[in-house]
């Protein structure tokens, strides 16, 4: 346990700090923005696609190639769809002249 904590100490710091940053960011959000914010956060966790790209890029057998390919498509859907939907929602909040 002690060994595990010591060898991963940087990552543990990062995780804890990020938890606080995440909480801090959301603390005061008007309810109007709940849905767009959720949608934006949804797009950001699409960062999982980087894992899919790594798998795809290193794939040297059929199993990894196929699953990696599907994972890249799904991840891209999450990222692109997420950002576009959020933008469409927010487009409607633009100031009226």
């Amino acid at each position: 346990m002690l060994e595990f904590i010591n060898s991963n100490i940087q990552i543990i710091y990062l995780v804890i700090l990020m938890i606080f940053v995440g909480v801090e960011l959301i603390e005061k959000v008007p309810s109007v923005l709940h849905t767009p914010l959720m949608s934006g956060a949804n797009a950001i966790h699409g960062v999982v696609i980087i894992g899919a790209i790594i798998i795809m890029g290193q794939a040297d057998n059929m199993f990894a190639t196929l699953l990696g390919f599907v994972a890249v498509i799904l991840g891209t859907l999450n990222v692109v769809g997420g950002f576009v939907v959020t933008d469409r929602m927010l487009e409607m909040f633009k100031k009226k002249k």
Partner: peptide, 16 residues
């Protein structure tokens, strides 16, 4: 970057 993005959404999403 995966770690930051993931944890950020994890904690912000929970609070939301």
């Amino acid at each position: 970057v995966m770690l930051v993005g993931g944890i950020l959404v994890g904690s912000a999403g929970t609070l939301l």
